[in-house]
Simulated assay, not measured.
Amino acid sequence: MDTLTLLFYTFSFVLVYAAFRVITAKSAVTAALHLVLAFANAACVWMLLEAEFLAISLVLVYVGAVMVLFLFVVMMLDINIDSIRQGFWKHFPVAGVLGAVIAIEMAFVLTRGFDMPTAKAFAPEVAKIANSKALGIELYTNYLLPVQIAATILLVGIIAAIALTHRGRKDSRSQNASQQVKVKKADRLRVLKMDPVIEQPSAPAESATNPTQGGQA
């Protein structure tokens, strides 16, 4: 057994263990940390398979951004795992059947995909360029339409999430752009004609103390 094979089995074993701990850990923080470990080992496996772009993307996007944000959310919300785990065994048979079906479908697709003659025919040409460049060429030439459809679906999901979670505050002040466009000059400024008011001079106020009486103290 050479070094690459030993590293592959080591990273794969740690990856499977971390993925198992993600679904069996009682604490949400522990599950999130094991998920970070699983992502890191998956990136190592991709590095061994000479897929550097995917490995770096996994570390930067998932480990560096998504999981850190998820950890902050979990620790700030203090989620009660016991209430979430209620009814786990009740829905376990249905979940097990669906998981088995998904695993069989993925295995069928992957095994058929690896045996494609076109992939073997273009393997020497693809090996001459970097994998990140080859991935970009494939995504934006042969798979441009699926990429655009996926981006549109993600955009719709983001807008739907914002619309569902948005709650208008009563104390917030906002302006209606449509009403501002329809504003006319007469609505903003109104000139009033008023008669001038002439104020009458007021009588001088009497002194509080009489000077004649001031000397008779």
Results as ranks from 00 to 15, higher is better:
215 G>Q: 06
75 M>N: 04
202 S>F: 13
177 A>K: 10
140 Y>V: 00
90 K>Y: 03
85 R>C: 07
128 K>A: 15
13 F>C: 06
15 L>E: 01
50 E>P: 00
78 D>I: 12
210 N>R: 04
14 V>F: 14
140 Y>R: 01
171 D>E: 14
25 A>N: 04
67 M>K: 14
67 M>F: 14
110 L>F: 05
121 A>T: 03
163 A>Q: 02
160 A>W: 08
204 P>T: 03
116 M>A: 04
177 A>H: 06
55 A>C: 05
65 A>E: 12
49 L>K: 10
76 M>D: 00
176 N>H: 08
5 T>R: 10
107 A>M: 09
208 A>S: 07
217 A>F: 04
86 Q>A: 11
46 W>Q: 10
185 K>T: 13
162 I>T: 12
2 D>Q: 13
136 G>A: 10
101 V>E: 12
181 V>A: 10
89 W>L: 12
136 G>L: 14
56 I>N: 09
157 G>N: 07
100 A>T: 09
212 T>W: 12
42 A>M: 15
3 T>R: 00
144 L>S: 01
52 E>P: 07
94 V>Q: 03
204 P>S: 06
210 N>V: 07
102 I>N: 06
10 T>N: 04
216 Q>Y: 05
152 T>C: 10
25 A>Q: 02
27 S>K: 01
155 L>T: 15
95 A>G: 04
141 T>W: 02
118 T>E: 13
146 P>R: 03
146 P>G: 02
141 T>R: 00
175 Q>D: 11
130 A>E: 06
14 V>M: 12
32 A>N: 05
107 A>L: 14
45 V>W: 02
195 D>R: 08
81 I>W: 14
197 V>R: 15
143 Y>S: 07
199 E>T: 13
73 V>N: 08
141 T>F: 06
121 A>E: 11
186 A>G: 07
64 G>L: 11
149 I>E: 03
189 L>Q: 14
213 Q>V: 05
41 N>Y: 02
158 I>M: 00
210 N>Y: 02
18 A>K: 05
155 L>P: 05
14 V>A: 02
176 N>L: 09
119 A>Y: 15
104 I>R: 00
111 T>W: 13
78 D>P: 01
197 V>W: 10
24 T>V: 04
10 T>R: 14
156 V>C: 15
167 R>N: 08
33 L>F: 06
46 W>N: 11
196 P>S: 03
152 T>L: 14
167 R>K: 01
216 Q>W: 04
120 K>N: 15
39 F>Q: 03
61 V>Y: 01
138 E>T: 14
47 M>T: 10
169 R>T: 02
70 F>W: 11
106 M>T: 00
